[in-house]
């Protein structure tokens, strides 16, 4: 959902409050923040609850740096859906002469980044993306479950602190049969709802409305909605605005096909995932219960600060 211009003053008031109360540290760029210990304590509390929910999944734990090969990025077809959110890494590959030119352009106030070349790496837009190339081949009976947690990047600068450009997503991914993928999604939607309810919030499950790019994107968005492929668990963060904090997403064969993953029966694998937006849940807690965590409801404090 795009920013609502009518809420601009609410966004900046919440952001300033978070900075003044020592949860976030601002940078010169909208949507890019440092996190303080106070904020990280909340994140750790939420993550403990997420891991508890996932303790029956027998999921393989995988952690990645926030960067993946461009070749993997290309296969996910992200470029077709969200070209405007991508983060491509560039670096200097020239010689001494080119270096001198680079410095000259910079000192002249010119755009020195024009002189950089793509490194062959992209920032990861969704935590599960780097896992799919590891699954190429035939999966065991019952498929595979993965526990992935890491930073994601989406270039959508905003003054709304709940729309960060770099944020963490903790995911449980299933790859296997279509039935297994749907079952995984159906298992996790109520778990997510329970987690948010236990934390004193009033979540709703809604069909997702991803910001697919352009006219082509309008069609992809309709397909996603009509197929009810992705749900979001939303909570109120501002008056009249619900923010997605968890998503459950059935990918069909979107990853199975390009990464050549087969389920045990030899068919193209289907996949699904649940993604917990860690900063978003923390911010929703702060929006719901206030910036003074000492006076949060005791039941919530016990869960976050056991």
């Amino acid at each position: 959902m795009p920013d609502n211009p009518e809420l601009a003053s609410e966004y900046s008031a919440f952001r300033d409050g978070l900075v003044d109360a020592d949860f976030l540290v601002r940078s010169d760029i909208d949507g890019l923040y440092g996190r303080t210990d106070k904020f990280e304590d909340i994140i750790e509390g939420i993550d403990r609850l997420v891991v508890e929910l996932g303790s029956d999944q027998n999921a393989k734990v995988l952690r990645f740096p926030p960067v993946m090969p461009t070749t993997v990025f290309e296969k996910t077809d992200y470029l077709a859906s969200f070209p405007d959110l991508t983060g491509s890494i560039h670096t200097f590959t020239g010689n001494d002469k080119a270096h001198a030119q680079l410095l000259q352009v910079h000192s002249d106030g010119g755009d020195w980044t024009d002189l950089l070349d793509p490194s062959g790496e992209m920032l990861i837009p969704a935590a599960c993306h780097p896992t799919y190339p590891l699954l190429t081949g035939t999966l065991p009976e019952g498929g595979r479950k993965l526990d992935v947690y890491g930073y994601c990047f989406r270039h959508e600068p905003s003054i709304d602190p709940t729309r960060m450009q770099a944020f963490r997503m903790h995911e449980y991914v299933y790859v296997g049969t279509p039935e297994g993928a749907l079952a995984h999604r159906e298992q996790w939607a109520p778990r997510g709802l329970k987690l948010l309810t236990d934390l004193g919030m009033t979540p709703e499950k809604v069909v997702a409305n991803d910001p697919f790019f352009g006219r082509a994107g309008r069609m992809l968005a309709v397909n996603q909605r009509d197929g009810e492929l992705k749900y979001e668990l939303v909570v109120q963060t501002y008056p009249g605005q619900m923010t997605a904090v968890v998503s459950v997403n059935y990918h069909e064969d979107h990853f199975g096909k390009p990464f050549n993953i087969k389920s045990a029966d030899g068919a193209v694998a289907h996949s699904s995932c649940v993604g917990f937006g860690m900063e978003r849940i923390a911010l929703a807690l702060l929006a719901t219960h206030g910036l003074d965590t000492a006076i949060w409801p005791e039941s919530v404090r016990e869960l976050i600060y056991p």
């Binding site: 006219r215 082509a216 309008r218 069609m219 996603q224 009509d226």
Partner: peptide, 27 residues
Amino acid sequence: TSHASVNVMLAIEDEFDIEFPDEMLKK
């Protein structure tokens, strides 16, 4: 696939020099 259908949509627009209205941009 849904992604290929988007490419089909754009190519049909080129081929026939038309533009699909929003309400027709569906599966």
